[in-house]
């Protein structure tokens, strides 16, 4: 009985070990993000009807994030915007990951291929992300595709390096030599020995890319080079709200901005915790 009391006294988390705590954190944060995406998809157009009788209302219990100059509920606009951001982030991160894995694998194919990959990584690193995204986005004619491709093509470099180094490191392992001596082909070794080691790193890399992708999408859209003004994007909400800040409608920018920050931090937290699970020793580097 005394142990039960102690457990209760020390809070809910104390009963769990570090691994369970980490898993719980990952689960809860993922649930939050999933809820945002699902609600943003299931909220129809009618939820954002203009209602001029209730425009520019400050936050209240009925409209927790207030309303805008057309009487639209800012909470719903924010949820829709966040959902869109997360989905664009997901697309961009996935494309980025695929690029990174292909180039990482390519770099292990030979010396020439390796120098080529290093050269192209350095080339992309020498251009500022934002500039690169804007250029690609304009080149692709703007819109969601432009932003996704722009973000995807500017974020693969980090993971490519990780994959490249990881493959190099595994290839020097004795059991790879042994596998070759047992008559296994390069392809067999790549799929059975090397690739399984890469999966956690790839997963982690993708999730850590998310916050960058989301923030970059928002800033490019904010600057007017990204999603079109018809889309319910956070970047659009923020740039519109700038016009109304001087009129004292602070909630138009404050809540959407804060929510975006929370989502970004949530992804960062998932990434951090996942990193601890995958490699407890490296988590503090």
């Amino acid at each position: 009985m005394s142990t039960a009391v102690v457990t209760v006294n020390r809070g809910v988390f104390r009963g769990l070990n570090l691994r369970q705590k980490t898993l719980l954190m990952i689960g809860l944060t993922s649930l939050l993000l999933l809820t945002i995406v699902v609600s943003s998809v299931s909220l129809g157009e009618e939820s954002l009807q203009t209602d001029f009788s209730s425009k520019n209302l400050s936050p209240s219990t009925e409209h927790p994030f207030g309303t805008d100059w057309m009487g639209r509920d800012m909470f719903i606009r924010t949820v829709k915007g966040l959902g869109l951001s997360i989905m664009i982030g997901a697309f961009a991160s996935t494309i980025s990951t695929i690029l990174a894995v292909i180039l990482g694998l390519l770099s292990s194919a030979g010396k020439t291929a390796d120098s080529f990959v290093s050269w192209i990584v350095d080339l992309f690193l020498s251009i500022p992300h934002l500039l690169l995204i804007i250029l690609i986005s304009i080149g692709m004619g703007g819109g969601a595709t432009g932003v996704i491709i722009g973000v995807a093509f500017s974020h693969w470099t980090g993971l490519t390096r990780v994959v490249r180094v990881e493959i190099k490191q595994i290839k020097t392992q004795e059991y790879i030599h042994i596998s070759r001596n047992l008559g296994k082909s390069r392809w067999w070794i790549a799929t059975k020995h090397i690739f399984p080691h890469l999966i956690p790193q790839i997963l982690l890399g993708t999730i850590l890319m998310f916050p960058h992708a989301i923030l970059h999408e928002a800033s490019v859209t904010f600057l007017g080079f990204g999603l079109s003004p018809h889309e319910p994007a956070i970047g659009i909400i923020l740039s519109e709200s700038m016009k109304y800040l001087s009129a004292g409608y602070w909630w138009l920018a404050f809540f959407p901005g804060l929510s975006l920050l929370i989502v970004v931090l949530a992804f960062d937290m998932i990434g951090d915790n996942l990193g601890k699970l995958i490699d407890p020793k490296k988590a503090h580097e």
Binding site: E174, H177, I178, R180, N181, G183, K184, H193, P196
Partner: peptide, 30 residues
Amino acid sequence: KGYNPVQLVFQHPEKAVNPKWKMKDILNEG
């Protein structure tokens, strides 16, 4: 290429096995 008729076994067996494989897969790899 192919099975090497010269097989090497060395001092540190823990380096000679893929840590993510079960022993039966390690044993029957060749």
